[in-house]
Structures are given as C-alpha cells and as structure tokens.
Amino acid sequence: MPHDHHDHLSPSGHPYRPDNDHPLTYWQQMEIAVRELLIEKGVTTAAEISAQIDAMDARSPTDGAKVVARAWTDPAFREALFADASAATREMGFDIGPMRLIALENTAEVHNVVVCTLCSCYPRNLLGLPPDWYKSRAYRARTVKEPRKVLAEFGVDLPDGTTVRVHDSTADMRYVVIPMRPEGTEGLDEEALAALVTRDSMIGTGLAKAP
C-alpha cells in the first residue's frame, strides 16, 4: 500500500495504532505507568483492561435506538420504560451496570434536551462514550441558558409553542430522550424504525430521521 512506511510498522510487522507513532506525551507516559502499577499491585490485569475497552467499544447509539424503536411499537414496554428506564433496558438485555436511567419523552408539546454542566455525565452504558461537543465548554455553558439557540445550531428549530425542557444531569441519574416517531413510519418494523434513531435524537439535539 502506498501509505506504508517501514518505520510505521511495529516489530511484529503490524502498523501501530494512530496514536503509537508520535512522541509520547507526559500524560501518555503517566497512563502507561499507572496501568502497569495497577497490574503489579494486583488491582487489575491486562486482560481485564482489554475486556473493559472491548465492552465500551461494543456500546453505541444503536443500542439506544433499539430501545426507542421498541418504545414506539410496544405500549407495555413504553409504559415500563417511563416508569423505570433502568429496569426496562436491563430487561431488553443491555448491560447498563449500576446506571440509574430516566427516559424523557419528546412530544409535539415538549422537547427535552440533556446536558451536564458540572462535568460530562452521559448514559455511556447505553449509548457508548459521549461525542466531543457534549463535553465542550460551549455546549455545557449555553444549553441551560439558551437551549433554543443551541438547538438551532444543531438544525433543530422548534415552534414557540413547544416547551423546551433542559435536563442538567447533575447527580446520580442519566437521561435518554425518546424522540417523536416520524410521520409516515406506520408500516415499518422495529429494525427499520431503529435505523431512523440517531445519537443526537437521544440527547435531544436532533430529531429522528424521516424514512
């Protein structure tokens, strides 16, 4: 391949991951040192760290999309989800750990949007790791004060008659927004519906896609 250079190959002949061929930063040295100390002290093992990374990599917004699609199609599940979202998603088979989850329903009258002004709390056990913008100073500072302007930057323009509810994820709860089911989706099955559910629609900075 034209982009291959010998000095980008590890001794095993495989290319390094992209972060492996730049000079180490102080903080990367610290990560290696802390990790090796934790292994030497018996707190964890290399295998356990790999397994944890794999588990986090396996989580993605497609998990949340399945929850939304089911809520759109199964009234009993929908009711269970709004009563106790942790129990309902666990019941669906998602490994959400100790996460306390609250589902927020978007309707024609109410639009919910989630932010964490204190840090970067996010329903990571259901949606995976948060996008960079969610952790940005701008999103955290502005969403609680001018949510409509922030939503407009994301392409979501709400009528004045819709109430915006901002949820500041300040403590032990995590939030997932259940977006409105798009029109013209009456004939679609759960799988086709789930494909319309974006990550941003479950944070509240987007809407579900039209079919």
């Binding site: 004045d160 915006v164 509810r165 901002v166 949820h167 500041d168 300040t170 709860m173």
Partner: peptide, 9 residues
C-alpha cells in the same frame, strides 16, 4: 423563553 424549564437533581 420564560416558559421553558430546567430540571436538575
């Protein structure tokens, strides 16, 4: 928008 709300724990 004065009618909008903010929820926090």
């Amino acid at each position: 928008n004065p009618q909008d709300t903010l929820d926090a724990e």
